[in-house]
Simulated assay, not measured.
Amino acid sequence: MNFDELQKQWDNQSSEKVKIGNDLDIKTEANTVIDKVRKTLKKDFFFQITTFPILLLFPYYFDMNNQLIWWIVICYCATLIIPFTYIFRFYKRSYRLEYSSLKNINWFYYNYKSSIDVYSIYTYVLCILMIMFVGIVYIQKNTFIHFESPLLLYVYIVSILVIYVVFCIWILKWWINQFYKKPLVELEKILNQLDE
């Protein structure tokens, strides 16, 4: 068979039978969503790192430069390091993969989902450490002296804690829904389309 015969057969073939899958468009869309996630993670890293020096100023701001406060600051820093390491490693590994296969998109989706969970848990722990910090400041400054009865003191403490916890949970939920959940939902839709 020579080249001319091959060319005739090629020209006689119908192009209607050749169908290009929709997967290419879907995988391109997945890459776009993954790029958005990376940009969001990068911005959040810089936001968290810039807030760290503010934390170191708290003991001086409240005029509480003692060992107990610095111990809480050290615990706070240790709490920051572990989840940050996990999320940062996920961020770095995400650049090593080609997102042209379902397996790699799945990997990104599930690791991103667990990173959101880690971020949520670490934020809750930070809220608890902040409650400890504020409580120690109140106790050491003797700001409870103006309460006439212990019952009023306990009502005040419990109401402040409830307001603080509700506010922290609301802010956290809003933050995660605003910046992290939308791309997660988009990736889930893309994975569902690729599974079909």
Rank of each mutant, 00 (worst) to 15 (best):
E5P: 01
L6C: 09
L6R: 13
Q7E: 13
Q7S: 13
Q9L: 07
W10L: 15
W10A: 15
Q13F: 12
Q13C: 13
V18G: 12
K19W: 08
K19M: 09
I20A: 08
G21C: 04
G21A: 06
D23K: 07
A30C: 01
A30F: 00
T32F: 08
V33K: 00
V33Q: 00
I34M: 00
V37F: 01
R38K: 06
L41H: 02
I49D: 09
T51I: 12
T51K: 14
T51G: 09
T51H: 13
I54M: 06
I54G: 04
L57W: 02
Y60R: 07
M64I: 03
M64N: 02
Q67M: 12
W70V: 02
I74R: 13
Y76E: 04
C77P: 08
A78H: 03
T79C: 14
Y86Q: 11
F88D: 02
R89N: 12
F90R: 00
K92C: 03
K92E: 03
K92L: 06
R93P: 04
L97P: 03
Y99I: 01
S101I: 02
S101M: 01
S101F: 00
S101T: 03
I105F: 00
I105A: 00
Y109P: 00
Y112E: 01
I116L: 03
D117V: 14
S120T: 11
S120R: 10
I121V: 10
T123P: 10
L126Q: 12
I128A: 15
I128W: 10
I128Q: 13
I131R: 09
V134R: 10
I136T: 09
Q140Y: 08
F147H: 05
E148S: 15
S149D: 07
L152S: 12
L153K: 02
V155D: 08
V155H: 09
V155G: 10
I157T: 08
V158C: 03
S159T: 05
L161G: 12
L161Y: 15
V162W: 04
V162R: 02
V165G: 05
W170H: 13
L172A: 07
W174V: 15
Q178Y: 11
Q178C: 10
Y180S: 05
Y180G: 04
E188S: 06
E188D: 10
L191E: 01
